[in-house]
Amino acid sequence: MRITELFDNGEFVVTAEVGPPKGIHVDHLVEEAKEHLSGITAVNVTDNQSSVMRMGSLPTCVLLKNAGLTPILQLTCRDRNRIALQSELLGAAALGIDNILCLTGDHTRMGDHPGAKPVFDLDSVSLLHTVCQLEKGVDLAGNPLVGEAPKFAKGAVVSPCSDSVDAQLAKMERKVMAGAEYFQTQAVFDSEKFIQFMEQAKQFGKPVQLGVIIPKSAGMAKFMNKNVAGVHVPQWMIDELAADKEKAKAGITGVELAAKVIKECRPYCQGLHIMALGWEAKVPELLKLAGI
C-alpha cells in the first residue's frame, strides 16, 4: 500500500522511525515494532542514519513487511552512486516495498567511518527525479526498463524550524518539482515556527507530516539545540524537563510536551512522523494523549 493513497483520502497519516541494528539480529527490532507500532500507518527504516554503519534499510523493510507492517524505505545519496541507487529502487519494487523517502544523507564525516568516501553523486532532488524516470519506464540515462515500471509513494524531508527557512522552502519547492509527493519534517518543538512554516509550505499542495521527537531530558534537549541541524527546543520545555527529573526520566514529561506540540500543529498538517529514538514503547501513549 502506498501511503500517498491515504493522503489522497484525506487521512491523517502517522508514521514512526526505526533504525536497523549494527549486527544481524533483527528479531528484537521486529518484535518491538509489532508490539508498539502496529497501530500506525507505516514505519520508516533509516539508511545508515547519521552515517553510522548498520544493516541495510531494504532487508529490514522486507522483514518488517513480512511481519505485517508497512515499511518506508529511506534512501540516501551518501553511500551509493546513481547506478547503485537505481538498482536498489528496482530491487525494492520487486520485493513489494513501494514507499520511499529520498534524502541526501548526512556527510560521512559525521558518522563512525569518517574516512569513508562521501559519494553524493546524486542528491535528494536528483534522486526524486531519478525515481520519476524509473516510474516512466526509463532509467536516468534514458535506457528503457524491461517490463512494467515500478511505482512508489515518493517522500522527501524538510526542516521547518531551520534557521534558514527560506533556503529550506526553496529546496522543498525544488523537491516538489522533481516529484516529491509527501514530506516528513525534522523534529518540531516550537509549534509557532511550524505553523508559520506551513503558511508558506501549503502553497505547494503536498501533504506534510509533522516530525516529532519525545524529549527525554533537559540534557538531550540542550544537546540537540547545540548539535542537531534544524532542531530548536524552546527554553520553557527545557525548564519543564529539568523541573522534575524523575518524571522526565519516566517519559511522562516528554510525552506530554510532544502531545502538546502535536495538538497545536495538527490543524496545519496532514500527518505525523514520530522519531522515537528507542522509546518506541511510548508511541501508543503519545498518540492517545495527542488524541489521534
Partner: peptide, 11 residues
C-alpha cells in the same frame, strides 16, 4: 591500503 577521505580539506 584504504583511502582516508576525511583528509579532504573541503570538508
Amino acid at each position: 591500503q584504504l583511502r582516508d577521505y576525511s583528509v579532504d580539506a573541503k570538508s
